[in-house]
Design a protein around this nucleic acid. Structure first.
Lengths: 226, 226
DNA sequence: ACAAAAGTGTTAGGCCTACACCCATGA
DNA sequence: TCATGGGTGTAGGCCTAACACTTTTGT
């Protein structure tokens, strides 16, 4: 047993894991095996160990649930409503992660994990509905400062795939030509496989994300307007 | 005594309180009266009570230190390095606040509180240096989405005052005429006291922040570029 | 007298938006 | 053959950035 002079809250992390299947943004939920909220869907998460940082805890959870080792993770808010867990005072540090769906495998344990489109979310345990909404807000905000798209995309992708992603996040449709111009002007995309000259075809151009160019761009505090 | 099966961290809030004196951005620090880091400067903050949210705790601290009741407060990051407090595991939820310096009075207690310009900060206790740096980053980022200036400004202010503020935050100088055009075009400033026609003078025009117009503007997800 | 602060408009260039037609493919 | 997806360029408008001179006041 551990004893303290004053009451201490528990501290957990919860992780909103975003993926993109080429047309819809999805988040990964797990079905709870225990009470409270048994059998309901919830965000992956768990207690922060006493000898790890919140970020380490969140990455551990991400790895356990998805097998993904490298992913962009952002801490976006800490939720501290007094009664958000019926058992005891629990404060949760929330992260969102951007993963390539192709790299995700089922969780280590037998937990039931499943992707849900944002407009088809089930009822969520605890205050996880609020956490998800907040995460979407943050995603929408940070899209102006970070090339978020490329963390969610497969290595090679078409212009219309990435346009769909931006349209999903921003809930707005764009003109194809203008969108391509704007993205290409950033100079962080390279054509993945140049198509032979004389094959006018319906097969779209493929692009790849140029990490070096992006690193250079980041220095100049770029901003992407839509 | 309170007993738990697993070790629990302590949870605190820390608050980076920003003010603006007309030419420099300052933050409010207090001198610690007890160990560890006795006599060093630190951010105002304290333990989150078991029956209050983090936000309530942060507001309580702000009120105790400055007497300010109403101020914009934003939670921006939770710091959880394992050894950030030498006594025990302490996780801190960090906020920044935007206050009008004129409304700040000395703290309730005899704590030594003092404003410091950003480039004249003393050595700070704990990891507060890192917290401050992160807060400045967040301030710089959010200036594009919120009319931050007006929370730091006195009720009535001149165009060059607010320009100085933006220049301080963004570390960039602007052309006076272009800056004024850009700000005025937002339509959230009104002239406070129209000057008589025939007093061409060096005394600058005074402006006031139009809260209603700002509320309307916020709906349309505006963005301010510089 | 000189330096510092403030008032005031215009122009050129770049970016954004809107918009139409043709071709290839698969159903 | 019809619907869908994709490739391609231009013109107009708005915003941005750059820029100079005069007046006033305080030192």
């Amino acid at each position: 047993m551990y004893q303290y002079k004053y009451p201490h809250p528990s501290v957990t992390t919860d992780c909103v894991i975003f993926g993109f299947d080429g047309s819809k943004i999805k988040i990964l939920l797990i079905q709870r095996g225990i009470n409270p909220y048994k059998d309901q869907w919830a965000l992956p998460g768990g207690f922060v160990h006493i000898d790890e940082t919140a970020e380490e805890g969140a990455r551990r959870e991400l790895r356990e649930e998805t097998g993904v080792e490298q992913a962009e993770m952002y801490q976006f808010h800490t939720f501290s409503a007094v009664d958000r867990d019926p058992r005891e005072r629990v404060i949760t540090i929330a992260y969102y992660a951007l993963v390539k769906m192709s790299e995700v495998r089922g969780g280590d344990d037998a937990k039931n994990a499943q992707w849900f489109a944002l407009n088809e979310l089930p009822t969520l345990a605890f205050d996880h509905q609020e956490i998800v909404e907040r995460a979407i807000d943050e995603l929408r905000r940070s899209i102006h400062f970070r090339p978020i798209g490329f963390d969610l995309m497969p290595e090679v992708f078409t212009m219309s795939q990435i346009q769909h992603l931006y349209e999903e996040i921003l809930q707005h449709t764009f003109d194809r030509r203008n969108f391509a111009k704007k993205i290409l002007r950033l100079g962080i995309l390279v054509e993945a496989e140049t198509r032979p000259e004389n094959t006018p075809t319906r097969i779209p151009n493929k692009y790849r994300f140029d990490k070096d160019a992006y690193q250079a761009l980041k220095q100049s505090s770029f901003m992407l307007e839509f």
